[in-house]
């Protein structure tokens, strides 16, 4: 991992704004993620973390501002223009978002079969290899997602996210809803997968233990803006009241409860 900034950052957001109706969710987000870097964005529920990820993926369109992936401006690309950009991404969704009508191996192989046009037999072998990479043996391949525990679903979802060997991996609250041991297992897997792929990683979480473990750099989002960003080790000396309140989990401080979800 080289936290030094290369010439073109992998992902670059500058003054990205997004509002739903009259409610401004992103209020000029600036964030730069270097090649091969693992950045974790922390922030409370409803501060626009997921919206930011979805804007980068092109699932939502920002109202203004610029999003560059490998130097290519994506904010105003057409659906078809977004396709080659999206092929660079792998995403682990918060609740896994596994396709419940498909078996575990079909889920993992989905991007290979539908996206890359691989024959099913070949894709199945690749899927089983990817399941092995997240510590699952071939027995689960024919099960359906509903038959798996939450932690296992998360592993399958991780296997699916890495199956196409993406250059960029997104993790949406990877440890939410897991017990501390399983959360640590997932953290370790994320670190391993990112290292093996040499991928750039962007995670959003409010789990500080997870953030400290997987991040090269941490950024804090608050009221739709990045209020602090720096190396992981520096967060304890951030000298920012918002960051301070968040990492120590205090009820008192500048952060007020968000009432409405975004």
């Amino acid at each position: 991992m080289t936290p030094t900034e290369p010439a073109t950052p992998k992902i670059e957001l500058s003054s990205v704004c997004k509002a739903f109706g009259s409610k401004a969710v992103l209020n000029g987000v600036d964030l730069t993620i270097g090649r091969g870097e693992s950045v974790v964005v922390i922030g409370g529920s409803g501060t626009g973390k997921s919206v930011m990820l979805k804007c980068i993926l092109g699932l939502l369109r920002p109202d203004s501002g610029s999003i560059r992936v490998d130097g290519v401006e994506t904010a105003n690309l057409s659906e078809r223009g977004l396709e080659p950009i999206r092929a660079k991404f792998g995403m682990l969704f918060q609740d896994g978002a596994l396709f419940d009508s498909l078996s575990v191996w079909e889920n993992v192989a989905f991007g290979l079969i539908q996206g890359r046009g691989l024959p099913r037999a070949e894709a199945r072998d690749a899927a089983i290899a990817n399941l092995a990479a997240v510590g699952l043996d071939g027995d689960v391949a024919n099960l359906y997602p509903a038959e798996l525990s939450g932690g296992m679903q998360k592993r399958v979802a991780l296997a699916r996210a890495i199956a196409t060997r993406p250059e960029i991996l997104f993790f949406d609250e990877p440890t939410t809803g897991l017990d501390p041991i399983m959360a640590d297992v997932i953290n370790e897997l994320i670190i391993d997968c990112v290292r093996d792929l040499g991928a750039t990683a962007l995670s959003i979480t409010h789990d500080m233990a997870s953030a400290r473990k997987i991040a090269d750099r941490i950024a804090m989002i608050y009221q739709g803006q990045i209020v602090w960003a720096g190396p992981t080790a520096a967060i304890d000396h951030a000298d920012n009241p918002v960051v301070d309140q968040f990492i120590h989990g205090r009820a008192q401080g500048p952060i007020k409860m968000q009432i409405r979800r975004l």
Partner: peptide, 10 residues
């Protein structure tokens, strides 16, 4: 989010 997942899987 399975529909979003479809999109991210090209």
């Amino acid at each position: 989010e399975q529909i979003d997942a479809l999109t991210t899987l090209s």
